[in-house]
Design a protein around this nucleic acid. Structure first.
Length: 458
RNA sequence: GGCGCGGUUGCCAAGUGGUAAGGCCGAGGUCUGCAAAACCUCUAUGCGUCGGUUCGAUUCCGACCCGCGCCUCCA
């Protein structure tokens, strides 16, 4: 079954395939800026890319996929955070990198094969080298303050991805934004490759390209340099959120292709944003959720994963807390179904599910096909094939309440009393104790040979 | 203003030129001392509005209304 994915560049569905002689599929996914906890909108993108990674592994074999996701550890936001907290930049980015990794693990994301950082000396050198080449080739120029800018007019292909040439800048806001660097740039659409040190940058500066001032790399160049260093000049797939389409990816293409004289990526894929209450998440709207905030409400990370994957990746998904309840219930159903399966049956039963995933990552259709199967019963569905589909989606369903083994001792004592009373068929006492447990905020689920405790749902 | 996306049942969400997957919620039932879990059954003559094409449109075309995103460092 061929794996087809929408290509933002050609705007059509195209089959994914490796292009290098070694048969290794080269996959670069733009990662987070590590200055704060990632929010669930960020994770929607990373989760979608995690499913892409899994599908690629199934398609080409685990050893034939190389997945790279960068960490942006130097930019205005990280530097500002470090300055505000009076800490070294590296401390701040290490803290939030660790948090990002913990969240990714909780959400059951596969670990990328490489996770390059912009300030890694090796990659800093790579970025400077690229800028040197661009300067030499005439695609870049030094500004009076020692910064280096990319000369957009030197690259005829500029705008192919975002159709920027068909755009017109809004006279109001855009010009204001451009005015900030107006003195340094030759043209408003030029963008920074290297930013000369400013007092706000504090201790954070590195030797720059030839003839440039010490400072730090511009944002876009890191992906170009690190992708080249790890995956080579031409990669097979480059992904990110739609917001990166312009200018980030457009600029990456310009830098890389002018520097290398090779196509940067054979395929581009962008996932849509997560909305909350119908709007993009933002601090000013106060509709921004982190994983911790959701798990604090008693939601399992797996339910968060399910909820974030439940919409078509190329369509905006409107997130709500209700969707998490739906996700928990759906996961419980999948878990029960998985328990009922045996080795009997034919893996083709799962083909409709796989077909939907292979058809431009249509996860909602795949889930629909999966539940159609679930509703038909376990006959003819082998457990291994079912498990493989769950693995592809990265879902690990659990029984309801399975995680709730950590009741406080007094609650456990009450539960023990009630269990004893129940065994003695003293139902009056058992009911009273159920009431006391409820008052303590716990619910007791009786089984045949024992019980489980779980926090009372509100 | 430019570029792009979307409006499907109470909520979420697929999809198709021949009359609408699936999840949640809800209702009924089986089971259970109770409660849960599990399982079974039911739940859109309708897919933003108005026209057009067609034997037939939710699906194609046009217009309009509404919502969302991007438009220089936000996944």
């Amino acid at each position: 079954m061929a794996l087809r994915l929408y290509d933002s560049m050609t705007r059509e569905l195209r089959v994914l395939s490796p292009s290098h002689a070694d048969g290794v599929f080269r996959f670069y996914n733009c990662g987070p800026t590590v200055y704060a906890p990632a929010h669930i909108g960020n994770f929607r993108t990373f989760l979608i890319n995690d499913v892409v990674r899994r599908l690629l592994e199934l398609q080409f074999g685990p050893a034939k996929v190389k997945h790279v996701r960068n960490l942006t550890d130097v930019d205005d936001k990280t530097i500002k955070r470090a300055r505000d907290e009076g800490r070294p930049l590296a401390d701040v980015t290490r803290q939030w990198t660790e948090k990002f990794h913990a969240d990714c693990a909780a959400l059951n994301c596969l670990v990328p094969h490489d996770e390059p950082r912009a300030t890694d000396p090796r990659h800093l050198r790579g970025q400077v080298d690229m800028i040197d080449v661009l300067l030499r080739k005439g695609n870049a120029y030094r500004a009076p303050d020692g910064s280096v800018y990319f000369k957009v007019s030197s690259f005829p292909g500029y705008g192919a991805l975002s159709r920027v040439k068909e755009r017109e800048l809004q006279p109001g806001d855009a010009l204001k934004a451009l005015a900030a660097d107006a003195d340094e740039k030759e043209d408003g659409s030029d963008f920074a490759l290297w930013k000369a040190w400013k007092p706000d940058d504090g201790d954070n500066q590195w030797p720059g390209p030839e003839g440039a001032a010490p400072g730090r790399p511009g944002w876009h160049i890191e992906c170009s340099a690190m992708s080249k260093a790890i995956l080579g000049e031409t990669i097979d797939l480059h992904t990110g959120g739609v917001d990166l389409l312009f200018p980030h990816h457009e600029n990456e293409i310009a830098q890389s292709e002018c520097c290398n004289g090779q196509q940067l990526s054979r395929h581009w894929y962008h996932s849509e944003h997560l909305l909350v209450d119908g709007k993009k998440m933002s601090k000013s709207l106060g509709n921004l959720y982190t994983l911790d905030e959701l798990t604090a409400k008693g939601v399992s990370p797996m339910a968060v994963r399910y909820a974030l994957l439940a919409g078509h990746p190329r369509k905006q998904l409107n997130f709500s807390l209700d969707s998490l309840h739906a996700a928990e219930s759906a996961m419980a159903k999948l878990h029960a179904y998985g328990q009922s399966l045996s080795t009997d049956g034919d893996a083709v039963a799962l083909d409709p599910v796989r077909a939907a995933l292979h058809d431009d990552l249509n996860i909602p259709a795949a889930l629909g096909a999966l539940f159609t199967l679930v509703n038909r019963g376990p006959q003819g569905v082998p457990k291994a094939a079912f498990d493989e589909v769950l693995w592809t989606l990265g879902l690990k369903p659990t029984a309801p309440g399975a995680a709730a083994a950590t009741a406080p001792a007094p609650v456990v004592a009450l539960a023990e009393q009630r269990w004893t009373a129940k065994q003695a068929r003293d139902f009056k006492a058992a009911d009273t104790l159920r009431g006391e447990l409820a008052a303590a905020g716990w619910s007791m689920l009786d089984g045949k040979d024992g019980y489980k405790l779980e926090p009372l749902k509100k």
